[in-house]
Design a protein around this nucleic acid. Structure first.
Length: 286
DNA sequence: TCCCAGGTAGATC
DNA sequence: GATCTACATGGG
């Protein structure tokens, strides 16, 4: 299918998701001639997906899956021109980043996977986060496909996660996060954390509820709200966002939570999108 | 060996 | 309240 404002590489590799693998990358990053192929694991499916220019190809998906699973996952139903205009209107300095990273979209990920993944992400780095999630899926998920001799596994569903003890989580090299992961699973198994209920709450309410989980603070809660619950105004603040927010807007503010609120004030309902562009801005700023 | 990695909880000032 | 530090692990 033809796509605009979409780049597979930028979308997958901007740090919002971890359950994918690059199979092929062409030489150029130019929009018209870019060429990539990835394996993406989501919703108990293994997708082989490639992009060449503005042509996006779901190589092994049924039409029904494309419509019901993959178009929503990649957020392809949404018109990004208005989003971009709104962000540039809020701050003209972001125009160059938005033009360069024209193809970042915010994925609609599964709630359980998002919560678990971002607990794993704390004080870690992307290669290791991906490795841990792969190990977790291999050990407790199900085989869902094979590509060039390599097997792929679904992210474990809640009932499967519930079989994993804190000790088992430790065996997956999650370190001090093992306790947090076990607490999160308990919370989702009748401990007050319910996807439908969270979606029905206000942003503030849902964030506070998520933060009742031991090991979930403001940053992880914002990521879960943004990537796993559809709160597009959410504004996660990590070290990079902290730096860029201080540089551009509030030099004297050191509290991450206040910087998050500030971001939401500046960009409103598009806070989450702005945050993604600011993230690449910050990483290029050095 | 030391430092850092898309943080958080708990202690201390 | 703001600031400091331990927390596991792996890679540069």
């Amino acid at each position: 299918m033809q796509v605009k404002d979409f780049n597979l590489k930028q979308t997958l590799e901007c740090g919002q998701c971890f359950n994918f693998e690059q199979i092929y990358s062409g030489a150029s990053d130019e929009p018209e001639i870019c060429e990539y192929k990835y394996i993406v694991v989501h919703a108990k499916r293994m997708l082989v997906v490639s992009q060449k220019g503005t042509e996006l190809c779901f190589e092994n998906a049924t039409d029904e899956d494309i419509r019901k699973i993959w178009v929503p996952y990649f957020d392809l139903d949404r018109d990004y021109s208005e989003i971009k205009e709104s962000i540039i209107k809020a701050d003209e300095r972001l125009r160059p980043v938005i033009e360069e990273y024209y193809g970042i979209r915010i994925l609609n990920q599964e709630f359980v996977e998002t919560l678990i993944s971002f607990i794993i992400s704390q004080n870690s780095n992307i290669p290791r986060i991906k490795k841990t999630i792969r190990a977790l899926s291999e050990r407790y998920g199900n085989e869902i496909g094979e590509y060039e001799g390599k097997k792929y596994y679904s992210f474990p569903e809640l009932s499967e996660l519930d079989k994993i003890s804190e000790e088992n989580f430790r065996e997956l090299k999650t370190g001090f996060r093992a306790l947090y992961l076990r607490c999160a699973v308990d919370a989702m198994k009748g401990g007050g954390i319910n996807e439908a209920a969270l979606k029905g709450m206000s942003f503030q309410e849902a964030k506070e509820r998520l933060c009742t989980i031991k090991g979930v603070g403001d940053k992880v809660a914002n990521c879960v709200l943004l990537f796993g619950l559809g709160f597009r105004g959410a504004f996660p603040v990590d070290v990079w966002i902290k730096r860029v927010m201080q540089k551009l807007y509030v030099p004297d503010e050191a509290r991450a939570e206040r910087l998050s609120e500030k971001g939401m004030e500046i960009f409103g309902e598009y806070g989450g999108y702005a945050q993604q562009y600011l993230f690449v801005f910050a990483r290029n700023m050095r």
